[in-house]
Design a protein around this nucleic acid. Sequence first.
DNA 1: ATACGGTGTAGCCAAATAGCTAATTAGCGA
DNA 2: TCGCTAATTAGCTATTTGGCTACACCGTAT
Lengths: 110, 110
Amino acid sequence: MTDSASDIFSALAHPTRRQILQDLKDGEMAAGEIVARFNATGPTISRHLSVLRQAGLVTERRDANRILYSLVGERLALSVGDFLSTVCPEQIVLREVRKRSSSRPTEIQA
Amino acid sequence: MTDSASDIFSALAHPTRRQILQDLKDGEMAAGEIVARFNATGPTISRHLSVLRQAGLVTERRDANRILYSLVGERLALSVGDFLSTVCPEQIVLREVRKRSSSRPTEIQA
DNA sequence: ATACGGTGTAGCCAAATAGCTAATTAGCGA
DNA sequence: TCGCTAATTAGCTATTTGGCTACACCGTAT
């Protein structure tokens, strides 16, 4: 029932989740690897990850018995940037990443 | 207890509050004027306004027996923009401001 | 002084959130 | 198959959030 912007901003409302996104900026990480960076328990971080996943801000991928998470930076930039440029267009600029039909799937960064 | 980024993103998490900010984009509005735009009751909107005020996203000013709210777009752009440019710097550009600590005013597209 | 229009506060309740521990699922290797 | 590691799900509790109604507050003007 909640729109996607609400999902995204709610996800960003928690410091731990923002930190996770920041950590993922440099590449994918396993769940346990992420857990190790915080004081919270595994299940707690797992929950945070599922919030981020539902918001579409991260994707997961299996590697053996580990699960690797990676940032979906485009979605973050587009959704938040869209809002920002509606409310205060003078202060922010979205770099032309718009629809661009995403020709190549994976290659955002590496 | 909660940092200011959390306050801001939490404030943005609610559709009504985002809409209020958007409405304030074109200039200040009285509380009652804002209330008139939604289906919620006065007290409910008043509460939303206080959340926005605590987050520093709006300021209030008295005019006779009305209270006029206005957007603090700079704070919105700076806080959210800061986060965005940390996590996905490739996709977003903060336009100048930044109290001149940052060397380059960043390129603009307009 | 009193009344009134415009707002915010108090108090209540239902629902959602965040944390934990314990239990469960999924994959890999012997 | 069994055992081990990795991660999520279940279930619980405490806290916060969002909505309402009723009430109190503050200026203005009669």
